[in-house]
Every structure is written in structure tokens, then in C-alpha cells.
Design a binder for these strands. Structure first.
Length: 1101
RNA sequence: GGGCUUGUAGCUCAGGUGGUUAGAGCGCUACACUGAUAAUGUAGAGGUCCGUGGUUCGAGUCCACGCAGGCCCA
């Protein structure tokens, strides 16, 4: 190609479509992987999404983060394979299917067969796969969609089984208790979502009781704890307090027995239990039966001081060993109701269970017929016989059949007993919301049920230790949220009582004494064969046997002793599915051992911070327990995408952003760039669609403009970068400056990507393009591109701008893959400087240290400051920039500054339209200097004396300043002593130039000569005329190259002279071949310059 | 209730190791520029740096206690 593409207007959405097609046609993504064969690998794990819902804008965010680093590492020479995946099991799918089939969980296996149900799940879960794939493509997320891992596939499940078997063999898989909602009436546990059905929570009145737990070794000190389930009190095994909560010990009397007592409760709960009117009643004046019970606070302490306090068992039916009946710290304790002290019963509450395990508090159990530990309430909801006084009573009156319920419920009877024993502080009816079984409409109990667990606690130390080797972004998520979670680890409850998921491969014999864990399909077949031989099964299973329910449930195995064995009905937690993806995606260890070894652990993963206890945890845990390794070395935990006001997006509220619409309107690049540049990925993003527009205008618009400017003139001059690069030494100051900045930028960007700081990278690139390339380099050098012949200076300008654009394309490609591809190919189509077909196949630029010149960068900074100051002076004096002025003067206090300014003097002159830049130094004798203490330096040296010294220095006159400048030091006498100040302890700058209009910023001061000579005036007029003619040319629709003739009607002398003296200049600037001053002309056009009115005519040749 | 996190201009965000006049972009106002033109430049207005204490010669920055929002967990 001979010409650079020029565009009429930017069409960023179309760029997205075009480039997508280009990638597809040329297999660029595939090449970006295959071309790196044999290179070091960079492993990325894709956290599998579930395709049973449509993707939202937050998925664009998460996937942009993933994509950036995979593309960057590819450019850095790594081979980056990224296998896509789909999460397919689990509750969300099941609930959706239940809803669509109009059934409930209990209908499964009745109204529909398990087989039909699971088939429906299998179809539903991939329903929106096409929409997901479409978004993946359109947003430019490069991931291998052709061969994804799918968690419901046979091979995937087989890997899971092999892992479970490994855990089982290491004795890390066990069956144990967990507290779950349980319906005694229905005889079944209820899952959390069943409790979320409408109507399950009902307001009911229960008997609530504040019990007095007697502190060991005291006469009448009691800890008060409140419960709405007095029937759990015989199972009490501990009391929990809040560590930071303030508690009081109060001297008072029991309202039922009138006995004197000291009670402990939270300070915040005092008002609930003590009548303020009793405040002034004296303890001594109390008589049994008085309504107003006096009280007196006698001690106060924090909860953490109570930890370890022992108390006597409240209802001693079943004695327990220590450390039962001890005060512990519970993070669930509140002071919103009750006494701020919570009664703990290991068998009847999830918090209680967890806390009991944590503190090793034994729970209250009895032995059943088989000698197994069971709670004091049986599965029908009745007290066991060991609770002698109330044996056989249902713990809730609702559990009795009609008419059989006792007049006084168990709760009431217990309350009466405790009142009589001086163990009840207060009993009252309490109305609260409590869950009911949606099927029987009777209250739910929290009850311990069997579940399978992974003994993660055994690996706690190693989990914590290895976590410290992971680079978390942000670090706090790793140390805090994740680290603290690991510190307080409990065993992983694997069991789920559902249908669509990975079945637990454990078979148990009828007498529950023998177990087998199956670790592969081959092993299963082996065992089935034994079972067939034993006559328990008819046939061997087929080769394509589906490992899901119900088929797997039909398999009966034979135990070593010859018993029938049935599969445990549980499915495993779906988080095990996703946490196992490093192995299961390759069907390891059955296949692909080599691939697995090369791609484990991952170098990088990224997901939402809500995955901390989900995917991040399961990945880490399985890797540590099975491979004693981390699963990932670097992780970005990104935050939420909220709407522009900071609210959560939801389809229901209608504030959700459709990613397809955004991409269609603004293009994928602006969408990606906005999300990355606006806030760090780990902070929440307030998504404002206007921000996308702003990024598009400010960054992509500017970049597009700069490219178009380059293309326009490069095409006119035929610049193709065929010649050798012009040596740095032969390029202008501004060329060398922008190249220095560019190479500094390359280093910074490389560092930012390498540190997983995409936001910093995006912002730096954006600032470079907008501020430095466009607003400074191009603006100052415009004329070099269009003026004069095609010489080396011009070539240098083209080469310099070309290099900037090309480099920006490469370093910006990870974030804006589409537009940067377009830019790269538009440039390279003509220059053919690059071999690679795509910017994504190029190497990441390496900074050329020879180009970096910090002194030059400082100079340019100075030029910008001087220009800015001069502009502000012009504004103050109301002299427009088009009017040339003779000079500016800059005070220089040292030679270095003088050299710096001299180097950029030409730039300054053209930028602010002055004829010369002059310097004022000390020898001029007219500078007034200003001195300021350098606080950082004197603070370090003199500490507390800073204030005195600063005050003294601020008082210095010109003589003192001269002294320290001459001697390099100054002996300053303070009240009692003398301190020696060095020249570095102060900052000296020029304050004023008497008689001039000055402005200053920091240490830089500029004075402007505002006298306008006759000659300058004429030049100003000439420039104004050029401007008017140019406007006229534009109005006439002339092309840049069109030649014209200009005639002007004679005016007053100043104008005429100006036209005559600057005729050549005016003609050159306006492409005029003639400029004549005449007496009269036709077709005149009136123009105004300041107060003059001119008649002119312009004709095209 | 616990862990983590955020709070700086109207909006979105920067502000190593403490240093005295707290910055940018957008928006707003004014002016300028006009061969990048659906561009551009300059200037101006706009701040209780969430609050209260503390450490320090000096705190947006460090510490403590709060307040408000967010996420996760109970």
C-alpha cells in the first residue's frame, strides 16, 4: 500500500467489528499461542462462569482484567494457553429447573424422574452459551472456546472422584455432624433455599427466658443469658460474650424468689431489665415482694476479660467434663436483644457448634441403642429418657397431634422449674419471626445431621503458610479477608442433598461398618464386577455409563465381608467442581500428565472478590492438600461494578447496564479502557456511561486525531519510513524530548503490567497521548509537517511521530486490543517496518536507554512553565497571542537554569510569540530575591528548633541572602545558641524585577516586555490579516494547495505599511500569489482587525 | 456482631518514606487560537482532605476511637 488510511470520522464500534473479522480470518488468536510453542509458559486459569444466566457488564470488567495480562505476557514472549470452561452443576440451575417445571424438590423422583430432571438441568445450564460466546468475542476476550472444560462431563467427574479418593485414603474425608434446619414433623433436613421460600418465616410467640448461670466459687453471682428456646437449656455447654462489649455486674434481687443476687449482663442491655424508677431505691430498703426492685452497679469489664470464667451447669441431667460450662468469645454476640450473653448449645445451633469446636467445649450427648452419640432431642422432636423430668415430651407443642398437646408447653414447664430453683431471672412471651417447614407448617429445629467433611483443619498451618507466598492484588484481600478466614478455618462441609451435581463416590455397607471410596471408572467397573459375581447386580455397567444420579445410585457394591453396599446419597459441593479445574480440565491423572505438569500452578488468575471463600479457597485448599503447592501465584480480586450512584446493579431495578449495548455504541476499547482507567480493579467501579464517552473523546479521539494528522501529511509528502532512522543527534530538541518521554513511558508501562497494575498503565498511556504527544509535541511541531520541502527535518518529524504512534499501539494493545490493532496495521501497511501480522503478535517494546534524557525532560517542563506564565501575563495585560512582543526576561540564579532555558528558547519564542528570551542574573543588580526555609532539611537537622529558625530566615534581608549564597553557609544566632545553616537548608528564588510585569511559579519567574513598537504593531496586523484570509479561504471551501490572489482597498498608513512590509510573509502563509493594495475593487468582503475595517477580495487562480 | 475495604473540588480520581501554597481530568465561567477544526490553548471560580482526640517543631499522610457507604461472613 502507498497511502496511510485516512478516516472521515472515528467509528470505534465499527473498528471493533472489522478487527474481530480480521482476527477470525487470519486466526490471530490461535497464532498468538501456536507461534510461542517451545517458549516459557505463562499459565492462566479461567474461573468457569455458569451459562444459565446472561452476562452483565461486570463480566466485561472481570474478563478485561484477565485478558490484559494474558495479552501482555504473550507480547513478553510467553506461551499463554487459556482454556475456557463452564460451571454446570449446583443449586442455581436446579432452582431454575424446578421453577420451569413447576415442581418442588420433593417432587423430584415422583412427578418427574431424577433422570428427566437431570436431563433438563443439563440442557438449561448451557442455555445462554451462545450469548456468552458472543460477548466473549465482541469484548475481545481471548480464551479458547473451542475446547472448554465442562464440569458435568464424565471425564471431569472422574478426576473429581480420583481426588476425593486421594483425600479419603489420606483419612481426610469423614462423616460428621453439622447443624442444619430440620423438620421433625417431616423427618427431613431443609436446605437454606427451602427456608427462603415465601411463608416459611412466621411471627410466633415463644416463651423466652433469661437464665441465671451461677459463677463457680461464688455465693450468688450469676451470668444472665437469654434464650427463646428454653428446651435447649439442658443441652447448654457454654456461654458466649462479645470481646469488645462492656459488661456490668449488678447487685439486685430475683423477682421470683426475692433472693439477693449479683448478675452480669451487657451495659447496653441494662434498660431492658432494670426499671429506671428503681434507681434511687436503696438496696437495703428492699423487702421481698416489692414491685420496684433496686439495683446497683458494682463492677464493669470488657467481654474479653470474662473469657475462661467457669460456671455451674444450669440443668444437670447429663454431666460434662471441662472445659464445658466456660465463658467464651463469640463473634455472633450482639447487644440488640437479650442480655448480650448467649447461651450455647453445641447440638442446636450453627454458631454454637462452631464455637464449641473452636473452644473444644464438649456437647451434651446421650448414647442411642447402637452406642452412638445423639442429642437430647430425638428425630421426632422429643426429649430423650435421660432428661428425667420431661422425658418423652415434644420440645414444641406444635409437634403433638391435635388434642394431645399439654396445657403447659415444655418451655413453660422448664421456666417454672427454673423459677422455683432461683435460676430464672425473667420469663416473658416474646414475639419473633421463626422459620417453619413449608411442607408441614410446623416450626423448624436446628439439629445436628450427618454430613461428609474434608478435614481442611488438619492442613491449616500449611494453607496459611503457602498463602503468604501468593501475590494478592490487593494485598489486603490475601492477608486479611482470605488470611483471616484461613486462620479460623473449619472443616469443609461437602455434602449437598440434591440431584444435579457430582455424586459422592462412597459406598457404605448396610451395617454402616464398611466403606469403599471409588477413585476411577475402571475401579468402579472392577467393584461392579465383584458385585455381579456376588449376585447383587445383574450386569456390568456400560462403557458410556453416566456418573450422575440416578444411575450411580442403582449401583450396589459388595463389601470385603460380602455385605451389600449402597452409595451415600450426597452430592458434593459445587465449589469442589471449580476448585478442581486445574486437574479436571486436563482429565488428570488419567491423561495429559505432561500438560498438567507444565501448567500447574497457575501464574495468574482473576475473579471477583466475592470468590474469596469460593473459588479462591477451593483452588488453594485442594492444591495444598493434594499437591502441597499453591494453585496460583498471582491473583487479582476485582471489586463490584455498581451503577453510577454506587448502587448495586439489578435487572429488577432497571439500573443494569447491558454490555452489548455499551459495546455497540462506544466500541469495546472505550468500554474496556474506561473500566480499567477509572478505578483500580479491586476497588468498586461506579459505572457511568458518560465516563465511557469521555474516555472515547479524550483518549481515543485524540489518538485518532493524531494519527489522522500524521496520515494526512505523510501521504502528501509520501513518507513511508523507507529511509534509515535519522540519528538522535540530528533531531530537534522536541523530537528528542518526546522520544525520551516515550522510552521512559515504555519502562513505566512494562513495570506496571508486570506488577499487575493495569490502572496505572492505562492512565500513563492516556496522559502521554493526550498531554505530551498531542497537546505539546504535535502542537509545537505542526508547521514542520506542512511547511517547506520534504527534507531531513521533516523526515525526522514524521519518524518521531510514527515511532510514538507505533509504540503506543504496542503498549496499549493489551487494554485496547481492537483500536491498537487498527492503528498498528494502518501504520505498518505503508511502512512495512514490522514483520508481525498483528500487534498482538509483536514483542513488547524495550526501552532504548540512549533515548532517555532526564535533563531534557526537565528542560521541557521548564519551557511549559515559562509558556504558561507568559500566557498568563499576556492575559493580564490583555495582549493577544497573535500580537508579537519583543522579549521576555527570566531571572536565572544559576548557570544550569540558564542552559536549560536556552536550550528551549526557540520553542518558548514560537509558543508565546515573542522575539527573544533574555536572562537576568545577579550581576544585573536589579533582582529582588526571596528566601524560604527548606523544612524537610532543617527539620531533620534541628527538629524542635524548626519554628525559631524558620521565623529567623523569613526575616532575612537581601544582605543575608547574599551572605549564604556567597559562603554556602550561615551562622544563625538563636536565643541561646548558634546554628549553622547550609545552602541546602534554604530555597532562594527571584521575587520581583522592579518595573516589570512578572509572574512566577515555584522557582521560575518570567517578566514580559509589553511595549509594542511600530514594527511589532505592523507584524501583528499582518498576522491578523493572515488569520482573516485563512478564515475566508476556509469559508470558500478551498483546498490546502489552492493558490489565490488577494486585493485590499487602501487604508490608513499603518495598515498599508504593514501590508507592504509583510507582503512576502502574508503570501506565503495564505498560498497567495499576489497581494495588491488598490483604490477600488469589486466583490469585496469586509473584515475587521482591532478597530479597523478592511475591504478585501480573494480570487482563486 | 466480626473481617476486609472506601471516604480528598459539583462528578471520577491522583496524592513514595510526615515538610508548611493539596493536584489532574470532566463539568462550569471568561478569553484566545483557527492548515489536527465534530479539534485546540490559557486563565478563573470551586476544598472543614468524613469527625474527634493523640503522637510530632510540623499530619491529607502515623496512632486510637467514632460516623457513613460497600463486600464477605455470622
Amino acid at each position: 500500500m502507498n497511502k496511510y488510511n485516512e478516516y472521515k470520522k472515528p467509528e470505534f464500534a465499527k473498528v471493533g467489528e472489522d478487527i474481530l473479522q480480521f482476527w477470525k480470518d487470519n486466526g490471530i488468536f490461535e497464532k498468538s499461542v501456536s507461534e510461542k510453542e517451545g517458549n516459557p509458559t505463562f499459565t492462566f486459569f479461567e474461573g468457569p462462569p455458569s451459562a444459565n444466566g446472561t452476562p452483565g457488564i461486570h463480566h466485561v470488567m472481570a474478563r478485561t482484567v484477565k485478558d490484559i495480562f494474558c495479552r501482555y505476557k504473550t507480547q513478553k514472549g510467553f506461551q499463554v494457553k487459556r482454556k475456557g470452561g463452564w460451571d454446570t452443576h449446583g443449586l442455581p440451575v436446579e432452582l431454575q429447573v424446578e421453577k420451569e417445571l413447576g415442581i418442588k424438590k420433593e417432587d423430584i423422583g415422583k412427578k418427574v424422574t431424577v433422570d428427566e430432571y437431570n436431563q433438563k438441568c443439563r440442557e438449561t445450564v448451557m442455555r445462554y452459551k451462545d450469548i456468552w460466546d458472543d460477548l466473549t468475542e465482541k469484548m475481545g476476550y481471548w480464551v479458547d472456546l473451542k475446547d472448554p472444560y465442562i464440569t458435568f462431563e464424565r471425564e471431569y467427574i472422574e478426576t473429581l472422584w480420583s481426588m476425593l479418593k486421594k483425600l479419603y485414603d489420606k483419612d481426610l474425608l469423614y462423616k460428621g455432624y453439622t447443624i442444619q434446619p430440620y423438620s421433625p414433623a417431616a423427618g427431613t433436613g431443609l436446605s437454606s433455599h427451602e427456608l427462603n421460600q415465601p411463608g416459611t418465616y412466621q411471627n410466633i410467640k415463644d416463651t423466652s427466658l433469661v437464665a441465671q448461670f451461677k459463677v463457680s466459687g461464688t455465693d450468688n453471682d450469676y451470668i444472665l443469658a437469654w434464650t427463646t428456646t428454653p428446651w435447649t437449656l439442658p443441652a447448654n455447654n457454654g456461654l458466649a460474650v462479645g470481646a469488645g462489649v462492656e459488661y456490668l455486674k449488678v447487685k439486685t434481687f430475683n423477682q421470683y424468689t426475692f433472693e439477693p443476687i449479683n448478675v452480669i449482663l451487657a451495659k447496653d442491655r441494662m434498660n431492658a431489665y432494670f426499671n429506671p424508677k428503681a434507681k434511687d431505691v436503696k438496696i437495703e430498703d428492699y423487702k421481698a415482694g416489692d414491685k420496684l426492685i433496686p439495683f446497683e452497679v458494682i463492677d464493669s469489664f470488657k467481654g474479653r476479660e470474662m473469657e475462661g470464667m467457669d460456671y455451674e451447669q444450669l440443668m444437670p441431667y447429663i454431666p460434662l467434663e471441662k472445659p464445658a460450662f466456660t465463658v467464651v468469645i463469640g463473634d455472633f454476640v450482639t447487644t440488640e436483644d437479650g442480655t448480650g450473653i448467649v447461651h450455647i448449645s453445641k447440638t442446636f445451633g450453627a454458631d454454637d457448634f462452631r464455637t464449641s469446636v473452636q473452644y473444644d467445649l464438649p456437647g451434651v450427648f446421650v448414647k442411642d441403642e447402637e452406642g452412638k452419640d445423639v442429642p437430647i432431642v430425638d428425630k421426632q422432636g422429643r426429649y430423650v429418657k435421660e432428661i428425667t423430668d420431661f422425658a418423652g415430651m415434644y420440645v414444641k407443642n406444635q409437634y403433638y397431634k391435635d388434642e394431645e398437646a399439654p396445657g403447659k408447653s415444655l418451655d413453660v414447664q422448664i421456666s417454672i422449674k427454673l423459677k422455683e430453683e432461683n435460676k430464672a431471672f425473667k420469663v416473658e412471651k416474646y414475639e419473633h419471626s421463626y422459620p417453619h417447614c413449608w411442607r408441614t407448617d410446623k416450626p423448624v429445629l436446628y439439629y445436628p445431621l450427618d454430613s461428609w467433611f474434608i478435614k481442611t483443619t488438619e492442613y491449616k498451618d500449611r494453607l496459611v503458610e503457602l498463602n503468604k507466598t501468593i501475590n494478592w492484588k490487593p494485598a489486603s484481600t490475601g492477608e486479611g479477608r482470605f488470611g483471616n478466614w484461613l486462620e479460623n478455618l473449619v472443616d469443609w462441609n461437602l455434602s449437598r442433598s440434591r440431584y444435579w451435581g457430582t455424586p459422592l463416590p462412597i459406598w457404605v455397607s448396610e451395617d454402616k461398618k464398611e466403606q469403599k471410596c471409588i477413585g476411577s471408572i475402571a475401579e468402579l467397573k472392577e467393584e461392579v464386577q465383584k458385585s455381579v459375581d456376588a449376585g447383587y447386580m445383574q450386569d456390568q455397567i456400560s462403557d458410556d455409563f453416566d456418573l450422575h444420579r440416578p444411575y450411580v445410585d442403582d449401583i450396589i457394591l459388595v463389601s470385603d465381608s460380602g455385605q451389600k453396599m449402597f452409595r451415600e446419597k450426597d452430592l458434593i459441593d459445587v465449589w469442589f467442581d471449580s476448585g478442581a479445574m486445574p486437574y479436571a480440565q486436563w482429565h488428570y491423572p488419567f491423561e495429559n500428565d505432561d500438560i498438567f505438569q507444565k501448567s500447574f500452578p497457575a501464574d495468574f488468575i482473576a475473579e471477583g472478590v466475592d470468590q474469596t471463600r469460593g473459588w479462591f479457597f477451593t483452588l488453594h485448599t485442594l492444591a495444598v492438600m493434594l499437591h502441597d503447592n499453591v494453585a496460583f501465584k498471582n491473583v487479582i480480586a476485582n471489586g463490584l461494578v455498581l451503577d453510577k450512584s454506587g448502587n448495586k446493579m439489578s435487572k429488577r431495578l432497571g439500573n443494569a447496564i447491558d454490555p452489548f449495548e455499551t459495546i455497540a455504541e462506544y466500541g469495546p476499547d472505550a468500554t474496556r479502557w474506561y473500566m480499567i482507567s477509572n478505578a483500580n480493579p479491586w476497588d468498586n467501579l461506579k459505572f457511568n456511561i458518560e465516563g465511557v464517552g469521555e474516555v472515547q473523546r479524550r483518549f481515543f479521539g485524540t489518538l485518532y486525531n493524531t494519527y489522522n494528522f500524521f496520515a494526512l501529511y505523510a501521504n502528501l509528502d509520501g513518507f513511508k519510513f523507507e529511509e534509515d532512522a535519522i540519528p538522535l543527534s540530528e533531531r530537534t530538541e522536541s523530537d528528542r524530548w518526546i522520544l525520551s518521554r516515550l522510552n521512559t513511558l515504555i519502562k513505566s508501562i512494562d513495570g506496571a503490567y508486570n506488577d499487575y497494575e493495569p490502572t496505572k498503565a492505562a492512565r500513563m498511556i492516556m496522559d502521554f497521548v493526550a498531554d505530551e504527544v498531542s497537546n505539546w509535541y504535535v502542537r509545537l511541531n505542526r508547521k514542520r509537517f506542512w511547511k517547506g520541502e520534504y527534507n531531513n527535518d521533516k523526515r525526522a518529524a514524521y519518524q518521531t511521530l510514527y515511532t510514538c504512534l507505533m509504540t503506543v499501539a504496542k503498549i496499549g494493545a493489551p487494554i485496547a486490543p481492537f483500536y491498537m490493532e487498527r492503528l498498528y496495521n494502518d501504520l505498518n501497511a505503508v511502512s512495512n517496518q514490522e514483520q508481525a501480522q498483528s500487534v498482538h503478535l509483536t514483542d513488547f517494546p524495550v526501552a532504548d536507554e540512549a533515548c532517555i534524557n532526564t535533563a531534557l525532560e526537565e528542560q521541557m517542563q521548564l519551557a511549559q512553565t515559562v509558556s504558561s506564565l507568559t500566557h498568563s501575563l499576556r492575559k493580564k495585560e490583555k495582549i493577544k497571542v497573535r500580537q508579537p512582543l519583543s522579549k521576555i526576561m527570566i531571572p536565572v540564579l544559576d548557570e544550569a537554569t540558564r542552559h536549560h532555558v536556552e536550550a528551549v528558547a526557540d520553542l518558548i519564542k514560537s509558543e508565546v510569540n515573542v522575539k527573544s528570551v533574555e536572562f537576568l542574573d545577579d550581576t544585573s543588580g536589579i533582582l529582588v530575591k526571596k528566601i524560604k526555609p527548606n523544612f524537610r532539611s532543617i527539620g531533620q537537622k534541628f527538629g524542635p528548633k524548626v519554628k525559631l529558625i524558620a521565623a529567623a530566615v523569613n526575616q532575612w534581608g537581601q544582605d543575608d541572602i547574599a551572605t549564604i549564597e556567597r559562603d554556602g553557609q550561615y551562622d544563625l544566632t538563636l536565643d541561646a545558641e548558634t546554628v549553622q545553616l547550609a545552602i541546602d537548608d534554604v530555597e532562594i528564588s527571584s521575587e520581583d524585577i522592579p518595573g516589570w510585569s512578572v509572574a512566577s511559579e515555584g522557582k521560575t519567574t518570567v517578566a514580559l516586555d509589553i511595549t509594542i513598537s511600530e514594527e511589532l504593531r505592523q507584524e501583528g496586523i499582518a498576522r491578523d490579516l493572515v488569520n482573516r484570509v485563512q478564515n475566508q479561504r476556509k469559508d470558500m471551501g478551498l483546498d490546502v494547495q489552492d493558490k489565490i490572489d488577494v486585493k485590499v482597498v487602501k487604508n490608513e498608513e499603518l495598515i498599508n505599511s504593514a501590508l507592504a512590509n509583510y507582503k512576502e510573509y502574508i503570501c506565503e502563509e495564505t498560498q497567495a500569489l499576489s497581494l495588491d493594495v488598490v483604490d477600488i475593487i469589486e466583490n469585496t468582503h469586509t473584515i475587521e482587525i482591532d478597530d479597523w475595517t478592511l475591504e478585501i477580495s480573494i480570487t482563486v487562480r
